[in-house]
Amino acid sequence: MRNLLEVNNLTTYFKSNKGLIKAVDGINFTVSSREILAIVGESGCGKSVTAKTILGLIGQKKNEIIGGEVLFKGENLLTKNYREMQQIRGKEISTVFQDPMTSLNPLHKVGQQIAEVLTIHEQISRQAARKQAINILTKVGIPSAASRAEQYPHQFSGGMRQRAIIAMALVCRPDLLIADEPTTALDVTIQAQILDLLQDLRHELKTAIIMITHDLGVVAEISDTVAVMYAGHLVEKAPVKLLFAEARHPYTKGLLNSIPRPGSRKKLEPIPGQPPDLHNLKTGCNFADRCPSVMAKCRQQSPLLKKIAPDHQAACWLYEEER
């Protein structure tokens, strides 16, 4: 199967007064059509920056330095200008952001905000766009969508808003949806509903999804493949079942150990320490300072993401000899 999205050696650096911040530092991954890829990691590890770089929302300013390539249907998005990206954003690649409370413009009606996407990307009358907006609102499970479409965001609850935002993202039937922590700001019950909704829509609209999250529960629930990110690097990548059964990278293991399991009497083992300061990264593996199995080599050279088993990749010196 041809890859829908191919990210090759993507780097996103920010120049700041304190020096260069390597937010994303050489990551590689692919997404095939209809796949759900989860990118997991702690806050500040570069997940959202990755998403925004793919969308071209980062890279316009002088202090933002982008490298590598992002091939979408074979075309490099990083070489496109703002106007060309405008054609792709919202139509072929769309986004759901983390906080539904702030992602909708408070001065525009919800239906209008959805219809706007259609009027931008398709030759369509206002009337027809409005009708389609109502249809998609119904599809994402908003009752009496026709009257709801005439309401303003403040009249919607958080879960309803996130549904509306998902409707907005999917109204043009994009090939790829980037969902940046779509459930983080929601109650647990609403979270489950939203995840179900995304699953259903994936099948119905044949959309691939990049799910960015720090919640391993969400990952287990929805994704096909998981990429674990730490301090701007991908440290492990595997199909979801394999990853949960046989996590190899010490960071992934640490993440899995820090989730509470119902019924288990075992004490939670949080990963000691804090993620490194991206301003002054030391040489060697970024995780070395927090790693329980750190070796001398880890402090000298950074490991690369390599295949350690079929379908399973990790960036760790522990598995270097096995190859």
Partner: peptide
């Protein structure tokens, strides 16, 4: 956020 969202929608 809604400005970023509008950009992500492809608004000129």
């Amino acid at each position: 956020d809604y400005i970023e969202m509008a950009r992500a929608k492809g608004v000129s």
